[in-house]
Every structure is written in C-alpha cells, then in structure tokens.
Simulated assay, not measured.
Amino acid sequence: MLAITAFVGMGDVITPETFEWAANDPKIIKASTIICRFIDDIAEHKFNHRREDDCSAIECYMEQYGVTAQEAYDEFNKHIESS
C-alpha cells in the first residue's frame, strides 16, 4: 500500500504500467513489506508501544513456540535478513 501511495504522490512521472507492475506484488514489494512489518513488531515489543488490547506478533510467537523474547527477535531478524 505504501508503494502505491508513494507512486500516486509522484504525479505524472509514474505510468499506468508502474501501477500494474506494483499490483502484481513483485518480490521487492513483498520483501519490503516483510522487513517493515517485522522491524515494527520487534520495536513495538521492545519498547512496549502498543495498547493493552493489541496482540503482539512477538508475544504470539513466544507463546506458540515456547521461546524467550530474544529467541523470537532472532527468528524475526532471520526473516528480515533473508528478505
């Protein structure tokens, strides 16, 4: 969504083909989505920047796999690096 929004803000420079390309979910957009999401999940958990009723991906991972927060961070960082 952010990529499309950025393209809209560029005005006439962006062609309809650019939007078609982005709509086909290219690898670079998938990777940036994963990177942004996982970095945000780690930061929110580390600094507790979430509301009480929000579910943390880190906490869900910890509960599902019975690991510590650091182990969950490490696993998320592996996905970030591979993306």
Rank of each mutant, 00 (worst) to 15 (best):
M1N: 07
M1F: 04
M1T: 15
L2D: 12
L2V: 12
L2T: 15
A3M: 07
A3V: 09
A3C: 09
I4K: 08
I4T: 15
I4D: 08
I4C: 05
T5K: 03
T5N: 12
A6E: 12
F7A: 08
F7S: 05
F7P: 04
F7E: 10
G9M: 02
G9T: 00
M10T: 00
M10D: 07
G11Y: 02
V13Y: 01
V13T: 02
I14A: 01
I14R: 00
T15E: 01
T15C: 00
T15Q: 00
P16T: 05
P16N: 06
P16S: 04
E17I: 00
E17W: 01
T18P: 04
F19I: 10
E20F: 03
W21G: 04
A22R: 05
A23S: 14
A23I: 02
A23N: 13
A23T: 07
A23Q: 03
N24D: 08
N24R: 07
D25I: 03
D25T: 07
K27I: 12
I28W: 06
I29Y: 04
I29W: 01
A31H: 10
A31R: 09
S32R: 09
T33I: 06
T33R: 11
T33Y: 06
I34V: 15
I35H: 07
I35T: 12
C36H: 13
R37A: 13
R37C: 13
R37H: 10
R37E: 12
F38L: 15
F38P: 09
F38M: 15
I39D: 11
I39C: 15
D41A: 15
D41L: 09
I42S: 14
A43N: 10
E44F: 00
E44I: 09
H45I: 10
H45W: 02
K46G: 07
K46R: 13
F47A: 12
F47S: 13
N48M: 13
H49Y: 04
R50Y: 01
R50H: 03
R51F: 04
E52C: 06
E52A: 05
E52N: 04
D54Y: 11
D54T: 10
C55I: 13
C55E: 12
S56P: 02
S56Q: 09
A57L: 13
A57M: 11
I58A: 10
I58D: 01
I58C: 11
I58N: 06
E59Y: 03
Y61R: 11
Y61T: 15
Y61N: 07
E63M: 03
E63H: 06
E63I: 03
Q64G: 11
Q64A: 14
Q64C: 08
G66W: 01
G66M: 04
G66Y: 00
T68R: 06
E71P: 09
A72G: 06
A72W: 01
Y73A: 02
Y73E: 05
Y73V: 02
Y73Q: 01
D74K: 01
D74Q: 01
D74N: 07
D74C: 04
D74V: 07
E75Q: 08
N77S: 08
N77C: 05
N77E: 13
K78L: 07
H79Y: 12
H79F: 10
I80V: 15
E81A: 11
E81Y: 11
S82G: 07
S83G: 13
S83N: 12
